[in-house]
Computed example of a mutant assay.
Amino acid sequence: MNTIHVGVCGWGDHYDLYTHGVRNRDKLSVYASHFPIVEVDSSFYAILPQSNYETWVRETPQGFGFIVKPYQALTGHQRGDAPTDRRELFRQFEESIQPLVEAGKLKMLLFQFPPWFDCTREHVQYIRACRQIMEAYPLAVEFRHQSWFEPRYREKTLELLQTIGAIHVLCDEPQAGKGCVPIVEAVTHSAQALVRFHGRNVSGWRDPGEGQNWRDVRYLYRYSKEELVEWLPRIQRIAAEAEEVCILFNNNSGGDAVGNAKQFMRMLGIDPTGLNPRQLELF
């Protein structure tokens, strides 16, 4: 079996990892004593200064890997008029991540497209353009609109990703209409695969409720042991095809991501090495 890494999305809100009094600026260093990979979400909301990435490089061990989500204007999350100069935004984003690239810590770029990004000729061409602009980096594609995996398009979608050298993201998420995708067990890049666990909160996915922050509700879910067991043979098959499999838990609205990630690591028999030294508890 090839290499399997498990981590979670972000590192700031996983309070069960941090002892009382851990400063925000120390959280990544502590996180990196538990997991070998992490997803960077803050890059989705703004093109970050290089100094952020330089700090993160210093705070993590040599073999640590970052999965970075590009700025939201590059994945179509900003409804309305498209940015007038998207190529300039791509240039700025690419420039910002160079500290990770130079340190060998950029695991991949995660292009997660929005629920309204459906399977059309225009969107296919845009994915090709993203791959061409970011051809120097591993690039993963996550769909949120079901049309990409309808029977008439499923194989063509996977063929597209394979042809352009993109990584297909396998998702575990609620089956709640067009704005979600089924589990599609397929590897489109022999070097890497990415699996993301979003939880199975069907009602919260469809309707977070009036006055509720949709992120707080959508990802409020704890996987049972039985649900994780379902994934063990899938991961084994994926790892037989891809040299490296990265697994991320995103079900953190209730603080469940870390617990499920560690549980899944034990089930897979994974004990990562090369982490930051673990802090000693006072008692």
Score class of each variant (00 low, 15 high):
Met1Arg: 10
Met1Ala: 15
Met1Pro: 10
Gly12Asp: 09
Asp13Ala: 13
Asp13Ser: 15
Leu17Ser: 09
Thr19Gln: 14
Arg23Met: 00
Ser29Tyr: 01
Glu39Lys: 04
Ser43Val: 05
Ile47Arg: 12
Pro49Lys: 03
Asn52Asp: 11
Glu54Lys: 14
Thr55Ala: 15
Phe64His: 04
Phe64Glu: 05
Gly65Ile: 00
Lys69Ile: 09
Pro70His: 02
Ala73Phe: 07
Leu74Pro: 10
Thr75Tyr: 01
Arg79Glu: 09
Gly80Leu: 08
Ala82Gln: 13
Pro99Cys: 04
Glu102Asp: 13
Glu102Lys: 14
Ala103Lys: 07
Met108Leu: 15
Leu109Ala: 07
Leu110Ile: 06
Pro115Lys: 06
Trp116Tyr: 14
Phe117Ala: 12
Arg131Val: 10
Glu135Ser: 15
Glu135His: 13
Glu135Cys: 13
Pro138Trp: 00
Lys156Ile: 03
Thr157Ser: 15
Leu158Arg: 10
Leu161His: 03
Gln162Trp: 02
Gly165Thr: 05
Gly165Glu: 09
Cys171Arg: 00
Asp172Phe: 00
Glu173Thr: 06
Val181Asp: 07
Ala191Pro: 06
Val195Asn: 00
Arg200Asp: 10
Ser203Asn: 13
Trp205Arg: 06
Pro208Gly: 07
Pro208Ile: 02
Pro208Asn: 03
Asp216Pro: 04
Asp216Gly: 14
Glu230Lys: 11
Pro233Asn: 09
Ala242Lys: 07
Cys246Trp: 09
Cys246Leu: 13
Ile247Gln: 02
Phe249Cys: 02
Gly254Glu: 05
Gly255Asp: 04
Gln263Gly: 02
Gly269Leu: 08
Asp271Ala: 15
Pro272Gly: 04
Leu275Val: 08
Glu281Arg: 12
